[in-house]
Each structure stands twice: as structure tokens, then as C-alpha cells.
């Protein structure tokens, strides 16, 4: 696990120039835009960087060699999820610190502090992002995963539009009323629980994918 983490951090560090460019954009966003953007932007980038390490592993028959190192398939999956979560948290912390630092300089720290729970709730969609992207990247590889993700997100949009129409048409009005009566805190708690469950399911699915894989 330590060797895999070392490898991935070093591979991510290879993209120094890209990382610096991302950091510059994040700073500009922090100074000029709403808080949600910088947090969402930074954490999304971190997740993409972490998931992208699978492409490095896959490139040039890399998996073949990697799986001969003292690594078993379960450890490989464990490491990828750990890396994503670590980078996800690190990205969130850095972005939040930048946001708070700028808010402090602009004299609106109290406002920024009040926003922290909302900012924390942004981890939910990003956790769902990890849950979807990692197994798809492992299953389809760098080439086909883009197509698979496009199909998946397209299907998700269709489901959301379908559910919304169902609620608006009155066919599921009681469900709509019940959902709208929930407090924001209850929503965050419920969605957090759901995203953690989805993450765990995704982890089990990834393990299954790796166990089935041949190199």
C-alpha cells in the first residue's frame, strides 16, 4: 500500500505545471466568484487527478508489471479509494483555507464561517463522483471509460427529469410533499448516508472488477 501511494503521489507530482495552472485558476475564482465554485472546482480536480492514476497504471501494459509487485488486487483497490478520499479531503481543506483567508482579508469572516456546513455538504456529490468514476475506470480503462461515463451521466439526467415530471404531474405528489417538508439538515444527513452507502457499494464493485480482471 505504501509503495502504491508513493508511486501515485509521484505520478501526480509529474503534472506540476498543470497543478500550478489549476491553483492559479482556483485563486482567481476565490477572489472573484462565489465560495461554492472554488470548493467544487478544487475538489473535483483532486478527484480527477486521483482517478487519473488508474490511466497511468494501465498505460503501456503497466498493470501487468504492477500486479507482480507485492500488491494484491484488494490492496490495489483499497489504495485507489484511499487516494481519492485523501485527495478529496486535502482539496477541500486547501480550498476552504483559501476561501477563509480571502474572506478574512475582505473582513467577512463571520459570513464565511456560517457557510462552512454548506461547503462541507459539497463533499456529497464528489463522493458520488468517486463512486461512479473509479469502478468505471477500472472496468473499461482510459479509452472506453469516457464513453461509459457519458452514457451513465446521460442516463442519470433522464432519470432525474423523469422523476421530476412524475412529481410535478401529481402521480407522486405525496412523495414530493414529504421530501419538501424535510429540513436542510435532514437532507444533508440523508444524502451523506446515501453517498457513503454508494461509496461502499462502489468499493465492493471495484474489488469484484479487479478480482475478475486478467492482465
Amino acid at each position: 500500500m505504501r509503495g502504491l501511494l508513493e508511486k501515485d503521489f509521484r505520478l501526480i507530482a509529474q503534472r506540476k505545471q498543470t497543478l500550478l495552472m489549476y491553483a492559479a485558476i482556483a485563486l482567481m475564482m476565490a477572489m472573484t466568484m462565489d465560495s461554492a465554485y472554488i470548493i467544487g472546482y478544487t475538489v473535483s480536480l483532486c478527484v480527477l487527478l486521483a482517478v487519473g492514476t488508474v490511466s497511468y497504471d494501465e498505460f503501456d501494459n503497466g498493470f501487468l508489471f504492477l500486479m507482480t509487485l507485492p500488491v494484491d488486487r484488494k490492496t490495489y483497490v483499497d489504495e485507489k479509494y484511499l487516494l481519492c478520499i485523501l485527495l478529496d479531503l486535502a482539496g477541500w481543506c486547501v480550498a476552504t483555507l483559501i476561501y477563509c483567508g480571502i474572506a478574512l482579508a475582505q473582513g467577512r469572516m463571520a459570513e464565511a464561517a456560517a457557510e462552512l456546513p454548506t461547503l462541507a455538504s459539497m463533499m456529497i456529490p464528489l463522493t458520488l463522483g468517486i463512486s461512479v468514476m473509479l469502478p468505471i475506470q477500472l472496468k473499461y480503462g482510459a479509452g472506453k471509460s469516457h464513453l461509459a461515463l457519458a452514457v451513465l451521466f446521460g442516463s442519470a439526467v433522464l432519470v432525474v427529469v423523469g422523476v421530476r415530471r412524475l412529481i410535478l404531474s401529481g402521480a407522486a405528489s405525496s412523495l414530493g410533499e414529504r421530501l419538501s417538508s424535510l429540513s436542510p439538515e435532514a437532507w444533508v444527513l440523508a444524502l451523506s448516508a446515501v453517498s457513503l452507502l454508494v461509496l461502499f457499494g462502489s468499493y465492493l464493485w471495484s474489488r469484484h472488477i479487479m478480482e475478475e480482471k486478467e492482465f
Partner: peptide, 17 residues
């Protein structure tokens, strides 16, 4: 696997390292 050393003809560490 700690006890196995492998040299495969077409695979190795990432070329970016």
C-alpha cells in the same frame, strides 16, 4: 509476492517516472 522478482519483456514502471 515479496519473495518473487519479475522482469517482463514489455512491462515495467511508468515511463513518466
Amino acid at each position: 509476492r515479496l519473495k518473487i522478482g519479475t522482469a517482463l519483456s514489455n512491462s515495467g514502471f511508468s515511463a513518466y517516472l
